[in-house]
Simulated scan of single mutants.
Amino acid sequence: MSTDQLGPFAQFLGIDLDAADGDEVSAHWPVRSDLLQPYGILHGGVHCSVVESLASLGAALWLGDRGKVVGVSNATDFFRPVGDGVLRSVARPVHRGRTQQVWVVETRDEQDRLVARGQVRLQNLT
């Protein structure tokens, strides 16, 4: 599956799509040393970026030719520090309406432990 749909920033982060449609987006991505904060753990902004990227893709695929989507809020909680390895993120819709969508993205480590969970509200621009 092509990461072109995610854009150059997501490609820089190393997001590798596993599957993507209007009902679910899944991807895996490496924790790299250049993405760590000074304490040696993955920067929270990277988590937020992955959450926004996957939720936006799923929302856009669902909306299709009816318009475009843009994020209007992103709240991400961090549960477990990670300093290396490969993470897997899955985005699923909570609400898909005429004007807005809400998607939840869970990120898990290689031992299937929950690392972060984010929620994105997106505006449907039709």
Rank of each mutant, 00 (worst) to 15 (best):
M1S: 13
M1P: 11
T3E: 12
D4E: 13
D4F: 03
D4Y: 03
D4H: 12
L6D: 08
L6A: 10
P8K: 09
Q11H: 13
F12G: 07
L13Q: 08
G14N: 08
L17R: 10
D18V: 14
D21M: 00
D23A: 14
E24W: 02
V25I: 06
A27I: 05
A27M: 08
A27T: 03
A27N: 02
H28N: 10
W29S: 03
P30M: 02
V31P: 02
V31S: 04
R32P: 06
R32F: 11
S33H: 11
D34S: 08
L35F: 08
L36V: 00
P38V: 01
P38F: 04
G40L: 05
G40Y: 12
I41P: 08
L42P: 10
G44I: 04
G45T: 04
V46G: 01
V46K: 10
C48G: 15
V50T: 07
V50G: 11
E52I: 03
E52G: 06
S53A: 15
S53Y: 04
L54H: 02
A55G: 01
S56E: 03
G58D: 07
A59T: 13
W62T: 02
K68W: 08
V69Y: 01
V69Q: 09
V70H: 09
G71W: 07
S73R: 05
A75T: 13
T76W: 07
F79W: 06
F79I: 02
R80P: 03
R80T: 01
V82L: 02
G83M: 04
D84S: 15
V86F: 11
L87F: 01
R88M: 04
R88P: 05
S89A: 15
S89C: 09
S89F: 11
V90T: 15
V90P: 13
V90L: 14
A91L: 10
Q100T: 13
W103F: 08
V104F: 07
V105N: 12
E106V: 06
E106Q: 14
T107R: 05
T107K: 07
E110A: 13
Q111W: 00
Q111H: 13
Q111F: 05
R113H: 14
L114D: 06
A116L: 02
A116P: 06
R117W: 05
G118T: 00
R121Q: 11
Q123I: 00
Q123V: 09
N124F: 03
L125Q: 03
T126R: 14
T126I: 13
T126Q: 13
T126H: 14
T126S: 13
